[in-house]
């Protein structure tokens, strides 16, 4: 099954199994879109239901959110460069850019944790009201995804170190790349519909 190679395609597509893994992951991402849109729907329906906790506009800070957004956008860019280097056949370039992506992901998480702690100290926690439940679970789910993505990238970096660029490792890098870009897409929608709209309305 996995032996029929085609040379015209990049290494990660070179085996039938590799192609199937990539297609499978795209389908998984489609399911993830349904998952996040359910969370967005819940957030939107519960919007304004703050009971006696603070309103979002009082707590959201444009500065922090913009920094987080730029960090994540940059990490998506570095991740894209990592894939580009991989296709050029540069293991070193791939690992450097991937490590940089990792660092940016970690700093994003740092900001997010800071933000959550700050909100909780201001009296807006998971159990404060329906609105804040929706907020924390939506952004928290994204945060958990980022955390998993970081762990996954570390595992792949170790494997790259051990095995270099093979059909299997390049496929793994490509898939984790897809995942990372996807998290960026979700963040764009969180940035827009949670923070920006939350500050306007």
């Amino acid at each position: 099954m996995s032996e029929n190679k085609t040379d015209a395609l990049p290494l990660e597509y070179s085996t039938h199994q590799g192609q199937m893994n990539i297609v499978g992951f795209w389908i998984f991402l489609a399911a993830e879109i349904a998952l996040f849109s359910t969370l967005f729907a819940t957030y939107a329906v519960l919007f304004g239901r703050t009971a006696d906790s603070p309103a979002p506009a009082e707590l959201f800070e444009a500065g922090t959110v913009l920094i987080m957004t730029f960090i994540l956008l940059t990490s998506s860019f570095t991740c894209g460069l990592a894939i580009h280097n991989m296709r050029e056949g540069s293991l070193k370039g791939l690992m450097v850019w991937l490590a940089l992506t990792l660092v940016l992901g970690l700093s994003f998480l740092g900001f997010e944790i800071y933000e959550f702690v700050h909100y909780v100290s201001e009296g807006a926690a998971l159990g404060s009201s329906a609105f804040w439940s929706g907020f924390f679970v939506l952004t928290g789910t994204h945060g958990v995804h980022v955390t998993l993505g970081i762990g996954w990238m570390i595992a792949i970096l170790i494997q790259l170190k051990q095995r270099g660029l093979t059909a299997v490792t390049t496929r793994k890098v490509f898939i984790v790349g897809l995942y990372w870009h996807f998290l960026d897409v979700i963040w764009i929608f969180i940035f827009t519909s949670v923070y920006m709209i939350g500050m306007v309305v």
Binding site: P10, V23, L29, I33, S37
Partner: peptide, 20 residues
């Protein structure tokens, strides 16, 4: 390499997201 399943599923995912 991945045929047209990815963008097909992404398209439907956005339709489903809009419905949800």
């Amino acid at each position: 390499g991945a045929t047209n399943a990815p963008w097909n599923m992404m398209f439907h995912a956005f339709v489903i997201a809009a419905i949800i």
